[in-house]
Nucleic acid binder design. Sequence first.
RNA 1: GCGCCCGUAGCUCAGCUGGAUAGAGCACCAGACUUCGAAUCUGGGGGUCGGAGGUUCAACUCCUUCCGGGCGCACCA
Length: 583
Amino acid sequence: MNIFNEFERRIAAALSGMAADGELPQGLDFSRVVCEPPRDRSHGDISTNAAMVLAKEAKMPPRALAERIAPRLHSKSVAKVEVAGPGFINLTLEPIVFEEVLRTSLAEGPRFGASTIGAGVKVNVEFVSANPTGPMHVGHGRGAVVGDAIASLLDFAGYAVTREYYINDAGAQVDALARSVHFRYREALGEAIGEIPAGLYPGDYLKPIGEKLAQMHGTHFAKAPETQWLPVFREAAIDAMMELIRADLGALGIRHDVFFSERSLSAEGKVEAVIADLKARGLVYHGRLPPPKGQVDPDWEDREQTLFRSTAFGDDVDRPLRKSDGSLTYFASDIAYHATKFERGFKQMIDVLGADHGGYVKRMQAAVRAVSAGAATLDARLCQLVRLFRHGEPVKMSKRAGDFVTLREVVDEVGADAVRFMMLMRKNDAPLDFDLAKVIEQSKDNPVFYVQYAHARCESVRRQAREVSTELDLGSAALVQADLGLLTDPSERSILKLIAHYPRVVEQAAQAREPHRTTFYLYELASEFHALWNKGKDLPDLRFVNQNSTSLTAARLALVTGVRNVLASGLTLIGVSAPEEMR
RNA sequence: GCGCCCGUAGCUCAGCUGGAUAGAGCACCAGACUUCGAAUCUGGGGGUCGGAGGUUCAACUCCUUCCGGGCGCACCA
């Protein structure tokens, strides 16, 4: 139940009525007409720009048009209609409207706020896709959390969402991984291997795999030529790394629906097929690229390559599909991969990437449009860096010798809730400072705690109410019967209205693919709830549990339960737990 | 040099796809615990929204151009 959508429909109906009556031209475009909560609460509950966006076409000054529209917006749920400012129409709703929203939220429970705007459309959200060469670091964690939250929001908004992970299990990196593991294998056999050579992966996390291979194969591969052991070691290493990564993701509560192997693409001839397809449409050619402008690269050589005409789709230069030795580029595989997404029915694709992949976005969007003949779109969400702190001091994250802070270490130290919440306290394209000490602090300075505590407080009030009044039924079926007209304090009314905003917040967060909006909303709701709770300290009549009036207590517990439900719902969307108590 | 992202209170950041007098938190100052959990709350000061033009009834938001920061820039993934 989204009252803003509801009133947009009503206004559109009113405008159509005016067109029918000749007060407005026929065939006006109402798509820019929106309803939103006014910035200033004294302006009412819902504000619409209808008169201002239609003024030009209607050939009327905005205020004059607003005065014509306003009378048509009266109804039994509207207490007041005012024309204000440059031509806003402000609606003040009857209190009963918000009481009805609360009843709906109680009745719908966890489904309150869900919408159908997605209409079952398939969306593919690809996120994490970390190379299977080691444990995930904190930056991967941000992409993981953002991607998962976007997926949850879209699901809640009625899309058919698939969470997907692309395994880069082809190419030079996994060969380097296999060679690194071979060193660890020889080490496990008692050989002195010295330093792991540059270009390989020196981290200790490969030791167990070396040991396992030593147990399985003995000395069989110790002196064998690389061509014999490489495929075996590569396979084992990738499997082990993916197991590690899945475990890291699992610790964050993240689960993908599909793990898609890059190697399977070339194995099944998908890459060659997609190149042939693009070639048949004149989008592939053999040619030369201009040298990069400005910066002089001493290694640059003029070469003929197989190129994809990505400039035909807005890219800056055409991009190579084959290296000079004829082998395929990563980009070629990625085109084939995104082509399979389209073949699998996804016309909306979202890739959550690190900011260092920003330069890759245009060519990939070009590729998606090419392979889908314009039917599919790719939305790339870039996540900026995460900087780790402890008590305000930077935590070293040097990448040398595998000596970086892993995601798992952070999750183990502060918990998945803190990691997830803090990752969503910023929009994805802003850098993020993450203080390991602050996020486990049990104080209002820690937003994670602050919001979870509000939820726990709701539960605490419910426990208290049950103790005081044994005949009070706190089930939602009973609470919807409460006389909500008894909620008359401005703080109570304010929270009722905030609850009514929730469906709009999550719908817009889903459409904008901006999960941080949910987090900010939750903080605001928690804040208002804490404020109301404290009001009861000065004014005992405002306490939720009222010894003298069961009906008042029932009404207030309905409000508390509504707050609890929305907090729980929003926390679930961002993947954070909603605890019953904080002790 | 080119492309993308960012620049909002002393600090960290929101700003609802162009709306009304730009908002939180921290920090600072002044207050509230015979309590449904003070692990919280109330009030206060604090701004040429990086600069300059432009589009419009309306610009923090869109366009152009500078300044300052981040990322990327054929044959890596």
